[in-house]
């Protein structure tokens, strides 16, 4: 009972005692997961513990069902014809990949561990990047990053252009046609539905509860807490188990840190990849290339001013 209460209250603002209690005894909550709204929260996924039971997937579906699309049919005719209709409403039970109706799935890999062939399972969902390209490059601000590091797509505003999916290194967001704001604007010529993905149960976290997948896991695969502490925990776990880390540096850093007993190169080779089934490859910081130009942007007006002043001085001297 005490554990249950602590699990439900670990993030609640102002209940420091509960957080303190949680620190020592609750695996789901990081040891020092005191509520700090401005700090990014990360999750640690200990792949070695995952048994692939699917309880997290089930819990995710139950908890987030009210956010799933309810498309209006028939869909508007799209112009030009090349615009793809993406309809998952008749395939809502698909659970072996990401869809607008399935924001978390279990990925499987058969790998060689200590000379033995072993089945490894791992939950896959949005990585919740520290500087998420899906959020930063959304043309309308429909994707947003919360102060606690959650990236979420506002289904009331999203037009379904799928840019977020194209700029996501893992192609996480999934589109459902026939729903959302585009139907009220120019449904045949702009937009194509709404993009959906894991929002790490932002509403539950706001209520002081754990995300459904963490709460439901019988093996306590996941831990949530401030990013710095989760990274420390991940490193300690990796050291202790001779494991490997994924997500700490990928795409400039994410808020989903996996620790695996086998190298991620090997896991990546072994998992089934493709549409709705993200890879485990190393990922460079996609936002860094443009952001590295910021310094030049600051210096540019200085260079312009210097050139104009230089010209003035030159003309003044030549006229004397």
């Amino acid at each position: 009972m005490g554990q249950e209460i602590s699990r439900r209250t670990f993030l609640r603002g102002g209940i420091a005692a509960a957080a303190g209690l949680a620190a020592g005894s609750i695996p789901g909550a990081s040891a020092a997961a005191a509520p700090q709204e401005k700090k990014q929260l990360a999750t640690l996924l200990d792949i070695g513990k995952c048994i692939g039971c699917g309880a997290c997937v089930e819990a995710c579906n139950e908890t987030n069902a009210h956010k799933y699309p309810n498309p209006r049919k028939p869909f508007p005719k799209m112009y030009p014809n090349r615009v793809p209709v993406e309809d998952w409403s008749e395939k809502q039970d698909v659970a072996d990949r990401l869809t607008p109706y399935n924001w978390l799935f279990i990925q499987q890999a058969t790998v060689n561990l200590n000379g033995e062939e072993q089945e490894i399972t791992l939950p896959r969902r949005c990585m919740h990047c520290v500087n998420p390209p899906c959020v930063k490059l959304c043309p309308w601000g429909a994707a947003r990053q919360l102060d606690n590091g959650i990236s979420r797509i506002d289904s009331d505003i999203c037009l379904g252009g799928s840019k977020c999916k194209k700029v996501c290194p893992w192609d996480i967001p999934q589109r459902q046609t026939g729903t959302g704001l585009y139907l009220d604007i120019l449904p045949s010529f702009a937009g194509n539905g709404v993009m959906y993905k894991c929002d790490r149960c932002y509403d539950q976290i706001a209520d002081g509860q754990l995300p459904a997948c963490i709460e439901a896991c019988p093996e306590e695969v996941q831990t949530i807490g401030p990013r710095e502490e989760i990274i420390q925990k991940a490193r300690a776990l990796a050291k202790e188990t001779n494991g490997y880390i994924y997500g700490e540096k990928e795409n400039g850093g994410t808020n989903t840190i996996y620790v695996s007993p086998v190298p991620f190169e090997e896991l990546n080779r072994a998992i089934e990849k493709g549409k709705g089934k993200p890879h485990l490859k190393p990922v460079k910081d996609t936002m860094a290339q443009a952001n590295n130009l910021t310094t030049a942007m600051i210096l540019a007006p200085v260079a312009g001013i210097a050139a104009a002043v230089g010209k003035f001085v030159k003309l003044t001297k030549s006229s004397e």
């Binding site: 443009a290 942007m297 260079a303 312009g304 050139a307």
Partner: peptide, 21 residues
């Protein structure tokens, strides 16, 4: 996105130059 940033650097330099000039 990258080319937009490069062109933004140019426009900032040009605008500063034209204003001061």
């Amino acid at each position: 996105h990258y080319i937009h940033y490069l062109a933004a650097i140019l426009i900032l330099a040009l605008v500063a130059y034209i204003i001061i000039d």
